[in-house]
């Protein structure tokens, strides 16, 4: 993917290739934490943060360790280990630096250690053969896309509280239906650019 401008990838991963609504990765925290806009924002920021950092780190791990040694097939394990430890490390650092930052961002970090969107982005970047800059922007873009989706979801769910919903559909039921509708809306973006 040499030719593609990193910025195209950045915007494309927010809209046309939204990691959540187009690839359906990171669904579990999307559904469980999207009850309030405030918490969703915190979680979204944490995802942006972690995605950007881990895609850079995993890029280095993949192209400087795994590929030269011919053990690319171990990338799943390697990526997961890197992600898990980076998340922990970040949490500790943030906790020390500032209480406010910890409350607004750090507290969410453990929740996304095993978020599949994070691993997904690292794997995509390898499959699509992005360069380093492209990878980092792809990570950041995917994170922002994810945040956008969960914020929209939280906004909608806040409104839903006042609506009459059939009892059987309350909670997860209606949340799934709404994510489906949102995904369809995002399909409208596809076709603008192709990044894969």
């Amino acid at each position: 993917m040499e030719g593609l401008s990193p910025w195209v990838i950045f915007f494309a991963s927010i809209f046309t290739g939204n990691i959540l609504l187009v690839y359906f990765l990171g669904m579990c925290s999307f559904l469980s934490v999207s009850k309030q806009v405030k918490t969703s924002l915190g979680l979204g920021l944490a995802v942006v943060f972690v995605l950007t950092i881990t895609s850079a780190l995993n890029y280095i791990v993949y192209y400087y360790i795994l590929e030269p040694l011919n053990i690319e097939y171990l990338r799943y394990i390697a990526f997961i280990i890197v992600i898990a430890s980076v998340v922990q490390l970040l949490e500790m650092i943030i906790e020390r630096i500032s209480e406010t930052l910890y409350i607004n961002l750090g507290i969410f970090l453990p929740l996304i250690t095993v978020n599949c969107a994070i691993l997904g982005v690292s794997l995509f970047m390898v499959i699509r053969k992005y360069t380093f800059i492209q990878s980092v922007l792809f990570g950041a873009g995917s994170g922002i896309g994810w945040m956008l989706a969960i914020l929209a979801m939280a906004g909608i769910r806040a409104r839903l509280n006042e609506q009459k919903i059939p009892p059987a559909l309350r909670g997860p039921g209606i949340a799934l239906i709404i994510s489906g509708i949102m995904a369809m809306a995002f399909i409208g973006f596809s076709g603008i650019v192709q990044i894969q």
Partner: peptide, 24 residues
């Protein structure tokens, strides 16, 4: 090679985490 390099990566990260735990 595969085992060693994986062990190396995890070992390195583990060391970093242990140090961080200790001080942070």
């Amino acid at each position: 090679i595969a085992t060693l390099s994986m062990a190396g990566i995890s070992g390195l990260l583990a060391i970093i985490l242990v140090i961080a735990e200790r001080y942070l």
